[in-house]
């Protein structure tokens, strides 16, 4: 290796500096500004009162509990619904129709996120399709309150994440070599035993990645709980947006956002460790 002239050594830095600068100015710096704002009192002195408020005010605390509960339910239900569908697509549908079947299964994924939540509102409203069917069939005398409940939020979330997880789990199942299944069959295992002892363990790391993605995206989402859940029961993103929108309280909003980020980071560390053990 000959020593390169100075102009050539400058080239790689010229290539990577714009991207690094962008990340520093518009990601790291904003985060620092948010952290600083969260510990600054109105008179400019240092304070932890914004963080203390979160632990002292039961309604703020409640929003975090709600968020964790809803996200946990959504993650579990989505995985349980998506796995069989991905399996059917990968195993039961003929090879040449698989791409089409998969594209169809995730087609509504491409509607606007805001519009998708609104569509569920149409379905679940007091005079919407579901209530028409329920009252029309005589099962219920009066319309059931579905919109503006936790159930509506969960349904809206599950709809989105079933599509996302079907995609990732399908990819996972297709990557498995067929020789695993043949080996299991040669050793005398039936389809059920093959699935439980071979296929499921091999796809588990992929499921954990998908579940983690679901957790992160769902816990930080404002649109779905705001449109479908309404204001009866607040989740963390709604609480944060409320501080900005109605009250203009940036310090409290910053503190709440940082607490939410801390929770996600803890979840990441927990699942990352578990993932590594699984892979080994």
């Amino acid at each position: 290796m000959s020593t390169k002239p100075a102009s050539e050594r400058a080239t790689p830095w010229a290539l990577v500096t714009p991207a690094l600068l962008w990340t520093l100015c518009f990601f790291v710096l904003p985060f620092a500004a948010m952290a600083l704002t969260s510990v600054t009192a109105k008179d400019g002195s240092f304070t932890l009162s914004n963080y203390a408020q979160f632990f002292e005010n039961p309604s703020y605390w409640r929003a975090m509990v709600n968020s964790l509960q809803v996200t946990a339910i959504v993650t579990v239900v989505s995985v349980l619904l998506a796995y069989p569908l991905a399996w059917i697509l990968a195993e039961q549908v003929p090879e040449r129709f698989q791409r089409l079947a998969l594209m169809l299964a995730v087609l509504p994924f491409w509607t606007s996120y805001v519009v998708r939540s609104y569509s569920w509102l149409l379905v679940l409203a007091q005079n919407g399709v579901v209530n028409r069917v329920l009252t029309g069939s005589g099962l219920f005398a009066d319309p059931v309150q579905l919109a503006n409940t936790r159930l509506a939020t969960v349904i809206g979330f599950v709809h989105f994440f079933v599509m996302l997880l079907t995609l990732t789990i399908f990819a996972n199942l297709k990557q498995l070599s067929p020789s695993y299944r043949k080996a299991a069959a040669d050793l005398g295992a039936g389809p059920v035993r093959t699935f439980i002892h071979v296929i499921l363990p091999l796809t588990l790391p992929g499921i954990v990645v998908g579940a983690f993605l679901t957790f992160v995206l769902a816990i930080g989402d404002y649109i779905t709980p705001q449109i479908l859940g309404g204001n009866n029961e607040l989740l963390m993103p709604q609480l944060i947006m409320m501080q900005i929108g109605r009250r203009g309280d940036f310090p409290l909003a910053s503190a709440l956002a940082i607490i939410l980020m801390a929770v996600v980071t803890v979840a990441y560390l927990a699942s990352a460790r578990w993932l590594k053990i699984e892979r080994a």
Partner: peptide
């Protein structure tokens, strides 16, 4: 440095938007 560039992927849009709002406001 590569980790730094991909870091925003792990943070929710809400928090990225809020950070920029607070910074631009300042």
């Amino acid at each position: 440095l590569r980790g730094l560039i991909t870091l925003p992927l792990t943070v929710s849009y809400l928090i990225i938007g809020m950070g920029l709002l607070v910074l631009f406001n300042r």
